[in-house]
Design a protein around this nucleic acid. Sequence first.
DNA 1: GGTCGATACTTCAAGCCTAAACTAATTCGG
DNA 2: CCGAATTAGTTTAGGCTTGAAGTATCGACC
Lengths: 167, 167
Amino acid sequence: MATPAATLAEKHDGDFQVAADRDQLRLWLRMLSCTMVIDKKLRAMLAAEFGTTLPRFDVLAALERAPAGLGMGQLSRALLVSNGNITALVQALVREGQVETLPSPVDRRASVVRLTPAGAEAFRAQAGRHHGMIADLFAGLDASEAQTLYRMLGRVKMSIAASGAEP
Amino acid sequence: MATPAATLAEKHDGDFQVAADRDQLRLWLRMLSCTMVIDKKLRAMLAAEFGTTLPRFDVLAALERAPAGLGMGQLSRALLVSNGNITALVQALVREGQVETLPSPVDRRASVVRLTPAGAEAFRAQAGRHHGMIADLFAGLDASEAQTLYRMLGRVKMSIAASGAEP
DNA sequence: GGTCGATACTTCAAGCCTAAACTAATTCGG
DNA sequence: CCGAATTAGTTTAGGCTTGAAGTATCGACC
């Protein structure tokens, strides 16, 4: 059993810690909730207006920035999803004619995925709505607020990297 | 064709608009990326240390706040997931003995889901690590930064609500 | 009291996602 | 040159998620 003074100090430390923990939890839950709401709206829009999905849109977006095409592995690293996932995604897009795969001329294991003209056109339409929707959803923030938020998220990135993190 | 002056004005408006769009897109992508990284770390921790998943943890968390138990519908509304999803989640947790379902005494359609003692204990351990991990990941932000971020996310919430939004 | 529209829940099909196991091709060290 | 380690990609088993269709019950109104 600690002395009364030590007990008091301990109790206060504990209180502070618990309060900080709760605040961080609330912060995380708010961040998660905001992100999820926007994410769901984007997915719903893509489904309703284009009959597609966010992962497929992401594939098109990555390919649009690489006119020469990307390998499956490059694609999976760019989108932060697993290798096996890309296979199915690309196969679906090939069936829909938005993407085509060519055997790599330099590596018989690898293949190169490229947008078809139809895919490029579909992407342009989808990207327009996508960006427009984001602009709408963030329209209530003025430029300075947006910048502050951007900076704070940068701090979060740094904090994550500084934490005991080994991905 | 517009007059030179009109063309110029138009061009500048367009530039501003495009610049704002790009900034908002970057903001969104950073927000999504931060959230996804944290989310993945939490899922990986729950899988590695407890052999469970975030959705199951969420179910336990909701039930822990309702000692009398919750109906399936209440649960699905609390977690913002579909009805059919809860069924599978609860069935899995029942198999694992962390949760039990009782027929509602007042409504023969409904059932009440409650934590078992084993589930309550598992949840306490998981919640401790969950909160601790969040504290770690946000440790690089001081109290004022955390508050600023929290406030900005509140602004985002308001902006979303104000936009042409019908969930 | 009977019927009809809500409500509680389950089932099913389809898509996304991952980790792990596998095949095939490449590259590098000796 | 040849075997070992690496790398590209696919397959598979398992879990999450939704939306739609289906079943049973409830409640309210005629």
